[in-house]
Simulated assay, not measured.
Amino acid sequence: MSRQIVLDTETTGLSAETGDRIIELGCVELLNRKLTGRNLHIYFNPERDSHEDALRVHGISNDFLKDKPKFAEQADEIVEYLQGAELIIHNAAFDIGFLNKEFQLCGRMPVKSYVEGVIDTLAMAKEMFPGKRNSLDALCDRLEVDNSGRTLHGALLDAELLADVFINMTRGQEALLIADEESRDKSNANGVRVAAVDFSTLKLQVIKASETELAAHLDVLKQIDKSSGGKTIWQHATEAQGSMS
């Protein structure tokens, strides 16, 4: 049975190494690619204030967090929930870095010690949609996932949206082509790897050019050939093919 956890965090800022902390953890469980409803959602007292820029993103006030448990107090529950699962995270290096720092502060091993692996959906999206915006909102729009309730970032809501995005990104595959043992050796220090995407099942629509478009294309080729002094390769190939027929 394949158990995957779609995970997201909200934080006081951008750098765990300079003291920023996790303030919210949201996790959604998938069994064999189906939502189970067994989610994990925790707010934490980070023992510091959020940066103004972070507050504008998540809207979670410092006062709201004052009576919430500290991460160390919930670490056992978090480890038990994540144990043995494969994590699915958008921009995984960010969340894994913060989780590793929190585990370190309470004397625990890094995330990779508890999970089977990590799939970075941002890296997947960049491979599937090169040159396009691949934020969670952009992927929701592209894959027709309803994100109308996302006015601010929230860890549980974002994890739920990412679960739908991930399922849509990998729909049609008989199985996820996860990296083999050789690829695992090439994982980065946080153990993050990218699920290989099987494009063989994708059916691309073929749109044939109209007569007008073909004529315009031929005219452009003629102009290019004229500018080159009749030295274009395709012109020679066309002449050679004509002489053989």
Rank of each mutant, 00 (worst) to 15 (best):
E17M: 13
T18L: 08
T18N: 09
T18M: 10
G19T: 11
D20A: 12
R21S: 08
I23P: 00
I23N: 00
I23G: 00
E24W: 03
G26A: 04
G26E: 03
G26N: 04
C27S: 10
C27P: 11
C27A: 15
E29K: 05
L30H: 13
L31F: 09
N32V: 06
N32D: 15
N32H: 14
T36Y: 01
T36N: 02
G37C: 01
G37V: 11
R38H: 12
H41K: 06
H41V: 00
H41Q: 09
Y43T: 02
Y43R: 15
Y43H: 01
N45L: 07
N45P: 08
P46Y: 07
P46D: 05
D49N: 11
D49E: 12
H51S: 11
E52C: 00
D53Y: 07
D53S: 08
D53I: 14
A54F: 05
R56G: 06
V57D: 03
V57I: 14
H58M: 04
H58G: 05
I60W: 02
I60L: 14
N62T: 01
N62I: 00
N62C: 00
D63M: 04
F64Y: 11
F64E: 06
L65A: 03
L65G: 00
K66G: 00
K66H: 07
K66P: 01
K68Q: 14
K70F: 13
F71V: 08
E73H: 05
E73P: 01
Q74R: 10
Q74A: 12
A75Q: 03
A75H: 02
E77Q: 15
E80W: 00
E80K: 13
Y81E: 12
Y81A: 06
L82A: 09
L82P: 02
L82D: 03
L82E: 04
L82C: 11
L82F: 08
Q83E: 15
Q83M: 07
Q83A: 15
G84H: 04
G84R: 09
E86K: 10
E86I: 08
E86V: 14
L87D: 02
L87R: 06
L87W: 08
L87S: 07
I89Y: 06
I89M: 10
I89E: 13
H90C: 04
H90Y: 07
H90K: 09
F94T: 06
D95Q: 07
I96Y: 00
I96C: 11
G97R: 06
G97P: 03
L99F: 10
L99D: 07
N100H: 08
N100R: 12
K101W: 03
F103V: 12
L105T: 01
C106N: 10
C106V: 05
C106M: 13
G107F: 06
G107L: 09
G107E: 12
R108G: 14
V111N: 01
V111R: 01
K112Q: 10
V115R: 01
V115I: 15
G117A: 05
G117E: 05
G117V: 05
